[in-house]
């Protein structure tokens, strides 16, 4: 790792001030991606501004059909939340499937969303559940927020503060892991929301997380695994690498969508 300057922010304003005072600063969540990237010298910020000690970014609230998760809440805290499990077990299950237990003790939901790794899990839940991402400057729908591979609508000095998930009628998440890295080669989050069915795919899209509208229409008239397994997606929009061709990933989308709908019940 190249030399850097660690700064601990005590409030949102303090975090923004510290970032803007740095020549080339980056916000730091749990560090499970950023620090690993810095160790490989693929990133070399002159300063890292730690957001995880800001009190207002912490905590989980379940209230009146919505789940609110502070951006600095760890995956372990979400995975272990009895409150969330009681209303949306697909979300606690998703959080508990990220990385491994030690990674989950550090990694945060805000960090995962801000990084927008195409194989990350949380973007699928946010997209399928039509969650709202609140930041220090405003709020975003998933479609506004996720803008491409590792790209989001966030400004350099904009901080995710919390994510608000509407509780759906049904939800299921099914992940097919790369057997070595354990990241999603493809994963599908299926939800029956108040606005109808939503299907979000992560791990496979060449522009990151995406929805499959043909599947959503099919589920609108027939909520069943059979309704989606026959719907195919084009390999043209899929990632292709040594772990799986675009055609293979496209095939996984249909198979996993069926399993996710079945899991949702």
């Amino acid at each position: 790792m190249y030399a850097t300057n660690y700064q601990r922010a005590t409030s949102l304003d303090d975090a923004v001030a510290k970032l803007n005072a740095a020549e080339d600063g980056k916000f730091l969540g749990g560090g499970q991606t950023l620090l690993a990237t810095m160790k490989q010298r693929l990133a070399a910020p002159s300063a890292v501004v730690d957001l995880t000690k800001i009190p207002e970014l912490k905590g989980i609230g379940v209230d009146g059909g919505t789940i609110t998760i502070g951006a600095a809440t760890t995956h372990a805290a979400v995975a272990g939340s009895k409150e969330i499990a009681a209303v949306l077990p697909a979300l606690t299950g998703l959080a508990g499937s990220i990385g491994d237990p030690a990674v989950r003790n550090m990694g945060t939901i805000g960090g995962s969303l801000a990084n927008n790794d195409p194989a990350a899990d949380y973007p699928a839940a946010v997209m399928a559940l039509n969650a709202t991402i609140h930041t220090s400057k405003g709020s975003y729908s998933p479609e506004e927020f996720f803008t491409g591979l590792f790209e989001t609508a966030l400004d350099e000095d904009e901080i995710i503060t919390k994510v608000v998930f509407p509780v759906p009628q049904k939800a299921g998440y099914e992940k097919f892991r790369n057997p070595a890295s354990r990241y999603a080669l493809c994963a599908v989050f299926a939800a029956l929301t108040s606005d109808g069915p939503r299907i979000a795919v992560t791990g496979s899209g060449n522009e990151g997380v995406f929805r499959v509208s043909e599947m959503e229409s099919a589920l609108g008239s027939n909520w069943s695994a059979d309704a989606v397994t026959g719907v195919t997606v084009s390999p043209d929009q899929m990632l292709s690498d040594m772990h799986g061709s675009a055609e293979y990933r496209a095939s996984l989308v249909s198979v996993l969508a069926g399993r996710a709908v079945k899991k949702a019940g």
């Binding site: 660690y6 560090g31 620090l35 030690a102």
Partner: peptide, 18 residues
């Protein structure tokens, strides 16, 4: 792996200052 405040973490991916 070590424990920080009772939680297991990978100490190669945490800054001491953090």
């Amino acid at each position: 792996t070590v424990h920080i405040d009772g939680n297991a973490v990978k100490s190669c991916t945490v800054l001491a200052a953090q």
